[in-house]
């Protein structure tokens, strides 16, 4: 097995690795990729269940990061910067493919009439994998703006402020978008699986 790149350049700050990469050090960039690749893979797989597509998106994310490396602000976090590129790369791909076109969140038509019934918790007997299957199936049907905030909040456990910074929107917009996204998620899950509706 090839020696992992991180073992050769341990303990070096991301900022230093960026500088080395800009000076033509290929190994330094390899360490940057290796340091953050798993989290980026973890993020992107919430956007698509196709492993080949996940790998393509992550690869493009780092290739884009490399070409724009000189614009990276050193005082910021490299991971946050790459994370933003990953989200945009995934969204760009789906937009180009006509999947889940972006809709304006403020449009009340996006939400429609919220279902009056509540949503039950998943069955206690269900495996986590089964729950995740249903959740991702429903997420895939949501407009992209809702899907993204739910992924960032619920799977990535990002704080509202971090989501706001990442997406370039105000924290108030994040709050309202998460609220609407949850309502839409509930509506979709009840449409597909009415048995999970609460009985009054």
């Amino acid at each position: 097995m090839a020696l992992r790149l991180m073992e050769s350049l341990p303990e070096i700050e991301d900022q230093e690795l960026v500088t080395r990469t800009l000076n033509g050090d290929r190994e330094a960039f390899g360490v940057l990729v290796e340091r953050h690749q798993d989290r980026i893979f973890g993020l992107v797989r919430h956007y698509t269940r196709n492993p080949v597509e996940v790998e393509d998106i992550v690869q493009d994310t780092f290739l884009k990061a490399f070409t724009r490396l000189s614009s990276f602000q050193r005082q910021g976090s490299f991971y946050t910067w790459v994370y933003r590129i990953a989200v945009n790369t995934a969204l760009d791909l789906f937009k180009r493919q006509g999947r889940n076109p972006v809709q304006t969140v403020e449009d009340p038509e996006v939400i429609g009439t919220p279902p009056s019934r509540g949503l039950m918790r998943p069955d206690a007997q269900m495996q986590e994998r089964e729950i995740a299957e249903i959740t991702h199936e429903v997420l895939a049907e949501l407009p992209e703006i809702f899907r993204t905030v739910l992924i960032l909040r619920e799977f990535e456990q990002q704080a509202y402020q971090d989501i706001a910074d990442l997406l370039g929107i105000s924290i108030g917009t994040v709050e309202s978008r998460i609220f609407r996204a949850r309502a839409k998620f509930k509506e979709q899950i009840l449409q597909r699986y009415p048995e999970y509706g609460q009985v009054d």
Binding site: F41, G42, R45, H46, E128
Partner: peptide, 12 residues
Amino acid sequence: AEKSWFVPTEPM
């Protein structure tokens, strides 16, 4: 209950 549908996924 809505939040409980977002179960942590295995690390990738």
